[in-house]
Design a binder for these strands. Structure first.
Ligand SMILES: [Mn+2]
Ligand SMILES: [Mn+2]
Ligand SMILES: [Mn+2]
Ligand SMILES: [Mn+2]
Lengths: 225, 225
DNA sequence: AAAAATTTTTAGACAAAACTAAAAATGAGA
DNA sequence: TCTCATTTTTAGTTTTGTCTAAAAATTTTT
């Protein structure tokens, strides 16, 4: 295996991560424009990079037919995601960052190349299974736990559920959750769905009743209790 | 001040660090070839980069006359060195790396951009003043302690001294020091200088007598007791 | 002070990754 | 099936950082 240890550029790594992300763990194929939007670049640049990644067998690609991430591509993506999430845990647990401050720093740290560093960091953190936003951390073989989860808006009235993760790690959304009093692990009871605007009435931790917007209800992922 | 927050590229940062290093903390001017050797590149590339850094007022430069790092350049260099050394402390103290394994990883981590990350890391580590190789860690204003230190080979016979730092952080040299039983803080007594090959007879921590080569005696920096 | 050796700069290319503008392919609607 | 809007690719540049080869300046030697 000649390029077992090939090192991908910063740019390549970011594209691979974006494609993996947009494909839902590699199930679906991804089109050029979607990648361009995700990466904040132009479709022309995406076309160029796709040809390059295809030559390196990181994606399967036929002109005009979109890309599908390969097994090799999945492995690379999962390694980057593992690093990203471990660093996020470090920043929150050890350096006392707030969960809405860590994403951009982890975006840089995820590209540090040293397998030994990551295995030592993993051990130092006590082999965490989830990052501060509730996302699962793949192990060194890319295996991670998948808990069934769905958006809050899909849960029927009367049902109780637990917050597993969030669909949006933006500072604005996380700060909003803080204000409302929702975090990973919080128990919510769905009281009512308001037909007219899609907002949802909920009770937080058996005591505080409130209403969340449809946008929030879409981004809070829960598992029924 | 327009470019107060200008972000230097990875390449620019590495050149700035190399120039600072070769100039002994900004005292001396540095010639093109020396930079090329330090950076493992060609004099032509160095010429190009010097012109660029000079335009950005990071160095003072006149054709054929070598470069002198500016105050601005010094500040940038010291920030990178601060990050490098703090990360080295983290790797050794928290992740249990050995002192000969950390340099290359710190070489990557030193380029992570986040002032808040560094101040939190500094606090997490207990505001260390020295890195694992004995080098001083500049504070956020670039101030660092300078202990008088000289190579072991300069100490006269009969004198005792303490190991302050090492001039060479290569794995080969550090592993050699481990084998001989010398580390930062070790007390050495100089027993004799062997005229014919420059080797030095020493006694380590008042008990073990041995002889070190002239190369080693050059790279072990000590302060007389 | 001239010649020789060394150092440094310039000229010209190249690769990676981006962009704009234009061309080509695709797919949906009529 | 034809038209037309949308998507995707190609063509041609640009920027950054590198390289080799050649020219120019400086320093050392004689
Ligand atoms: Mn990234
Ligand atoms: Mn996360
Ligand atoms: Mn570096
Ligand atoms: Mn060090």
């Amino acid at each position: 295996m000649s390029n077992f240890n090939y090192v991908y550029s910063l740019s390549e790594e970011n594209y691979i991560k974006a494609i993996y992300h947009l494909s839902n763990h590699g199930q679906e194929s991804v089109n050029t424009n979607a990648i361009a939007i995700e990466m904040n670049t132009t479709p022309a640049s995406v076309s160029d990079m796709i040809r390059k990644l295809s030559k390196k067998k990181v994606v399967d690609y036929q002109k005009y037919r979109g890309v599908h991430i390969s097994e090799k591509g999945k492995e690379i993506a999962l390694k980057i995601i593992r690093k990203h999430r471990l660093w996020e845990v470090f920043l929150v647990e050890k350096l006392n960052f707030h969960w809405d401050e860590v994403h951009d720093i982890a975006e840089q740290l995820e590209h540090i190349k040293s397998p030994l560093l990551i295995s030592k960091l993993d051990e130092f953190l006590g082999f965490p299974k989830h990052d501060p936003h509730g996302d699962p951390i793949p192990d060194e073989n890319g295996v991670f736990s998948t808990v069934k989860k769905e958006p809050l808006c899909n849960i029927e009235a009367g049902q109780s559920c637990k917050v597993i993760t969030v669909n949006d790690s933006s500072s604005a959304f996380l700060k909003y959750l803080d204000k409302v009093g929702i975090s990973i692990g919080t128990t919510l009871r769905i009281d009512d769905h308001n037909e007219f605007d899609g907002s949802v009435d909920i009770t937080i931790n058996q005591n505080k009743s409130t209403t969340v917007s449809p946008a929030a209800a879409q981004n809070i992922l829960v598992t029924p209790l």
